[in-house]
Design a protein around this nucleic acid. Sequence first.
RNA 1: GGGCGGUUAGCUCAGUGGUAGAGCACUACGUUGACAUCGUAGGGGUCACAAGUUCGAACCUUGUACCGCCCACCA
Length: 977
Amino acid sequence: MLEKHFQPAEVEGRIYRAWEEAGAFKAGAGKRGQAKPYCIVIPPPNVTGSLHMGHALNNTLQDVLVRFERMRGRDVLWQPGTDHAGIATQMVVERKLGSENKTDRRTMGREAFVRAVWAWKEESGGTITNQLKRLGASCDWSRDRFTMDEGLSRAVLKVFVGLHEKGLIYKDKRLVNWDPKVQTAISDLEVQQIEKKGALTWADGDPEKPFDAAALAKALKKDPSGHLYHFRYPLKDDPSKFITVATTRPETMLGDTAVAVHPEDERYTALIGKHVVLPLVGREIPIVADDYSDPAKGTGAVKITPAHDFNDFEVGERHNLARINVLDAFAKIDASAPEAYRGLDRFVARERIVADMAALGLLAKIEPTTHTVPHGDRSGVPIEPWLTDQWYVDAKTLAKQAIAAVEDGRTRFVPENWSRTYFEWMRNIEPWCISRQLWWGHQIPAWYGPDGKIFVAMSEAEAYEKAQGHYRSQKHPLSPQREGDHGEGQRQSPAQGAVPHLQASSGKITLKRDEDVLDTWFSSGLWAFSTLGWPDESPELQRYYPTSTLVTGFDIIFFWVARMMMLGLEFMHEIPFDTVYIHALVRDEKGQKMSKSKGNVIDPLELIDAFGADALRFTLAAMAAQGRDIKLAKSRVEGYRNFATKLWNAARFAELNSCARVAGFDPAKASETVNRWIIGEAGRTAAAITSEIEAYRFNEAAGAAYQFVWGTYCDWYLELSKPILTGADGPAKDETRATAAWVLDEILKLLHPFMPFITEELWAKTGEVGPKRDGLLVLTAWPEGRGLSNKAADEEIGWVIGAITDIRSVRSEMNVPAAAELELVLSGANATSKARAERHGDLIRRLARLKSIAFAAEAPKGSVQIVIGEATAALPLAGVVDIAAERQRLEKEIEKARAEIAKVDTRMANAEFVAKAPAAVIDENHQRKADFSAQIEKLEAALKRLKAAADTAALSLNAPWTDDLSAGRWCARAWPS
RNA sequence: GGGCGGUUAGCUCAGUGGUAGAGCACUACGUUGACAUCGUAGGGGUCACAAGUUCGAACCUUGUACCGCCCACCA
């Protein structure tokens, strides 16, 4: 016996365990192992993270696809796993150590710190996995992977070494985005441009406003950005003359090595080739001509600091300028600057330098400006362009085949438009900086010899082998010797014994490993094949690569999708996935991005607790229309929780009416019209949901299911079947019971990808009676949905539903009390309608609250009349009907119909329309006109009868429902004074 | 500066050339042993604006306005 309400919290855990115990999510198991594979690799969440709304959406959509394909019989692998998330995790642990143990990573040392991170990973690593399970994610957890697993780490090494050998990974000294807080280089993608507006205004020589260093310091402390400072640089030849430059970053002037002007800027042509004396520093620097300088910007003359600005770096290259680095890793002024500024933080130095320049009379003015300042996306502090040695991937070369694969359609984006974004970025791709000065991550497999020579290898032992080979061929006086014992004593270099003269030498070389680790995205870029076992030739790799669909948000197309494309094609020589489905962002109900600082974060787990995982999943799927962000309101989740309740109650109804499944029931052989109709509707719905999911229109699929379950099955079929189910026993009742149960089964299957818990639970409950179930719903075959519809049944039930709706409508409009039972007289009905009315009289009476249905040649006088097709249905309300109101109603109906006819007429009057529109459209218009004309005819007849009745009718207060309590109100309305 | 998207009912949004839709909210009424987390009925829209293409435009084209996002630059 089913409870009145579905209680998700009591059911979900049990159901999930049942799936796992049955091995339902296991790829390649049993007979399925022979089927066509379908594979999705999960976008790996941060191992120490917890589930947010973005995960909930992302994984719901994946689960819908995966459950759908599994039911369709495919051998499904949903490959789960987590990401070590270098910077994010390291920062979390550092913060934790700081607050709990009052220590920091530098004090602890690298080894102890990395141990602490592993400990934290062990402690919190299962959180997100368990949360995904609560959502219902049907991943093959037996294949769970982590980017720092032994296998995946081996893949990282192999890729690094491979790319290095091909020259696609190289080390370079150039400007990088340096995060002075986390103390690491970051890639361009990890830089966030934040717009800053200044407010400071000051001009030299304004007697009203003398320069106030204290006020400046105060203002800059509040916001150091957004101000444009004009500095005068005195000419070497004549220190009384100046060239004025404008800058938003005064502190970098300590590293200036030139001033650039545009070669055609007449204001400055005379100065080109001359020198200025850099104030505060005293260095003589040239005035150079360079196109980079824009006469329209600032003063037209621009200071050049090659070591601290990406553009200036290029200018420096062109003019062979020195690169003077004046900042250290903490973005403090370093020893290359004048003593007065050494050790100052960049922003303190800024205010000091501006004040000092002002004191020297070299500050011309300060004006507010708007510019964007690059910030580290994790640390939130302004990044510094900083000159360091880093490792780079030659992305430009790798991008070529990745672009081609999307151009020729081997991989397609859904919605297609995202391929433009992909192309745009890929075609303008810059070298990818992959080294990070962190401790948590894959350490770069590069070793340095005593002379700085780099050996890139899969292992230290191999690096020593390479080093030995190298130095021997170089006739290097040093002999290589491995450092420490790495438990692989048997891996002796074969060369060693063969080179006695090296052995004989007493010198040893020591290789030092690069301390940096790799960008997290380097390892996640291998995810599509490293999780399947690469570099080993595993059976999974053979079977599931290329994977089928990648489901992800647009915010990581560059970070992740692009890199998987490049690395997949490079190492597997095949695309990593054939379809990339890009979904939207989940925002709050006002359309704002959810963020902790705004306090508008909706926790998916709270929603699951409140409404159940099914309700949350259905909401997300129903709102996942392509190309638009999802604004999530709690009320929507509540609404779909109600939908789950509705489904539950439909099952209860079936149970109460003994609608049990019947062995061997063949829907194609049903004979009752309602049954044939609902079976056809179920088939149509199955076909619709199938094609919508295939096209990734999750919202349409969810909508079709919702409409069918609530609007068709519950609202109509169950109502229409009540007279049969509560009527006499017999074949009709048996068939209806079997049909109701069969359709419910279909519903459970169709809803399962969206609402796995409640459907699985109902599958079990409804399986308690009738023939034994084959197994769990999760592994049940998806409905076919073809060839079950029956046109005659559809038309007949359509007529019945139409009649009931119209009668209900007019009852309501005429304020007939709900309980009142009316007598209906049908006139002008043709044989078909008459037969339909007779066949379904019982249920029409029941659902439209009629006492009886009679047939007559003409509608009785003084009745309210409704046009149903060719027939007129009359409700005898003589004497109680408000004639004026009824006349108005009829006139309004006539007016509406006439307006429609007018529309058709104008269209048909257009000769070109008649000539050019397709025949079907013309026919449709003819038909419309005929229908509306007939309707008008009937309505006009009704109006005429009404008038006649009004003239002759004896006023009677004996309404047929005067015993009803509401009769008083009814009569009062009907007879206004 | 370049690119992408949006503007349809009070709200949130579907709708790829042929009769403007859904959910929520709102109003009225509640009856039949599935369901008040419900039922029945109802009101509500110049599809942002303008021009064009077309027999026909919410839909295609161009432009305008406003809103959002991404990329680049920023003296």
